[in-house]
Computed example of a mutant assay.
Amino acid sequence: MKTTSKEDLRSHCAVNYGVEMFGDRWSLLIIRDIVFAGKKTYGAFLKSEEGIATNVLASRLAFLEEQGILSRAPNPDDGRKDFYTLTEKGLDLIPIMLNIVLWSAQHDAKSYVRSQKKFIARIRKHPLQVSEEVKALVRNGGCIFPDADV
């Protein structure tokens, strides 16, 4: 897959750029898996409940890496596996992910996140502080809900 350049964009609208970089369902779910559940490997992403196809997962991981949103490195314990992590550019998507969580908690009556009342309240009250805390957590290999099964 080739890297998207300014010449490849449908328009130079800021919303369009965001949609073309990470606006498809699978890219956002891969980022979600890293931020919320701490997933780092192809196999872990594949186990997410949405059931991404292997070819789509491989394509999205490659695209996100080419765009500088993800970085890939060999697993030090098993060289046959790669670890995927968010780059600084990818970490900058965390405030957007948290806003999606807030929106979903408000509008999806069956949203799992509704049970995380303290977390939702903190995001609403201190969005910038929570975003920075989550960025630091993920930058250091952590995630928001380490026991989550997403």
Rank of each mutant, 00 (worst) to 15 (best):
K6G: 08
F145K: 04
V150C: 08
D147G: 15
A44W: 02
A136Y: 04
S59V: 00
Q116N: 09
I69Q: 10
N99S: 11
I30E: 06
E50F: 12
M97A: 11
A14V: 10
D77T: 05
I96G: 07
L93D: 00
I123Q: 10
K117W: 02
R80N: 14
Q67K: 10
M97I: 09
G68P: 09
V138L: 05
G90M: 07
R122M: 09
I100E: 12
P127Q: 09
L57A: 06
H126E: 15
A148H: 00
A14N: 05
K81E: 14
D8V: 06
Q116L: 09
S131P: 04
E133F: 00
L70T: 11
V130T: 13
T41A: 07
M21A: 03
V56G: 01
S27N: 08
D147Y: 04
L98P: 06
S59M: 13
K135F: 01
G38P: 07
P127Y: 06
Y84C: 04
R122W: 01
E66Y: 01
V15G: 08
A109K: 15
Q129E: 12
I69Y: 13
D108H: 08
T87F: 09
L128N: 12
T41E: 15
M21R: 14
V130R: 02
A105L: 04
L9A: 07
L28E: 05
L46N: 02
R72W: 00
E20F: 01
N75A: 06
W103D: 12
G38K: 02
D82H: 15
K47T: 13
F45V: 05
K118P: 02
I31V: 15
C13K: 10
E66I: 01
I120L: 14
Q129M: 11
I69A: 08
A136D: 15
C13S: 14
